Amino acid sequence: MDHDEVIALFDTTMRREAVADAPGARVERARHVVRQVSAGPTASAWEGVLWSGLTEDTADAAIAAEVARFAALGREFEWKVYGHDRPLDLPERLRAAGFAPGEPETVMVAETAALATSVPPPEGVELRPVTDADGVGLLAEVHGEAFGGPLSEGLLRSLTARFREGSAAGRTAPGEATGQVVAVLAVAGGRPVSAARVDLMPGAPFAGLWGGGTVPDWRGRGVYRALVAYRAALAAGRGYRYVYADASGFSRPILARLGFHALAVTTPFVRAPVAR
């Protein structure tokens, strides 16, 4: 895999030409910035800057414009900075503008054709697709046990809405989300022990792998690997050349062993709402 070629493709298709990834959200394009905003203060979509093409001369003004844009909405937002974004001191400029950095993650990418996609789950484990709100509830339960905290209310609302709306074409307005989310549970003895999802955006070369988590007593048995293979097979069957995931320090070595390559390090910079 040619790293520079893939990162350029990712920047173009998944950042600069991004489409909204949640019901009611929309993508806005300014001169130097691409952002996503939600439908309102109680909506569930992620909000923030997806891509920026800045220089030392344009960065400060663009940052100020984004702060003003979201201040007018009265909302917190995130500027997702990739390690190769310019200018090189963009993180310092964001800190100076009141943004707080979060934990870095690594974008891990693999070609679907290079992954093992016929990996059965461990004995006694069945993979079940999530098809309704009850399934979303089970997914939330697994998340709580696997990650030690509840699924955010915003994400829970978003997933419930997406499964309720389905993936029917033509039911979203221009600029709104047009993709499909597919979630899957790993069930052992009637108990959900792991869960994950994949985002499939029409026309994009990359499918996103999200939310993979396994309860503590089932870790190290191959459940996560089976869920990766399941989702990669689904993406490959629908014509996606690549799958990617934002990996923590814990999941990065697992994905590397499965054939994923590190593409970029990302850091979320979050700006609290500006008091008005």
Rank of each mutant, 00 (worst) to 15 (best):
V228W: 00
E92M: 14
L155W: 13
M201E: 14
M108F: 03
G149E: 14
P192S: 04
G137I: 11
A195Q: 06
T58H: 02
E76A: 12
V223P: 00
P202R: 07
A133D: 14
F10S: 02
A247K: 00
A247Q: 01
E145T: 14
S251I: 03
T131M: 09
W79L: 01
A275E: 12
V265M: 05
A272I: 08
D89M: 09
R157W: 15
R31Q: 11
T131F: 04
S52Q: 01
A173Q: 13
E56T: 12
A45Y: 08
E66G: 04
S38R: 15
W210V: 15
A116D: 15
E56P: 10
E111F: 04
V142D: 02
D85R: 03
P192M: 02
G148M: 09
D2F: 01
A8Y: 03
P174A: 02
T55R: 09
L54G: 00
F77I: 01
V125Y: 05
A229Q: 09
I7D: 11
F269A: 04
V33G: 01
A232V: 10
G208C: 15
E5D: 13
D217F: 05
E5H: 06
V27A: 02
P91V: 11
P91R: 04
G166K: 10
T172Q: 13
E66H: 01
G213I: 06
E103Y: 07
G212A: 14
P121Q: 00
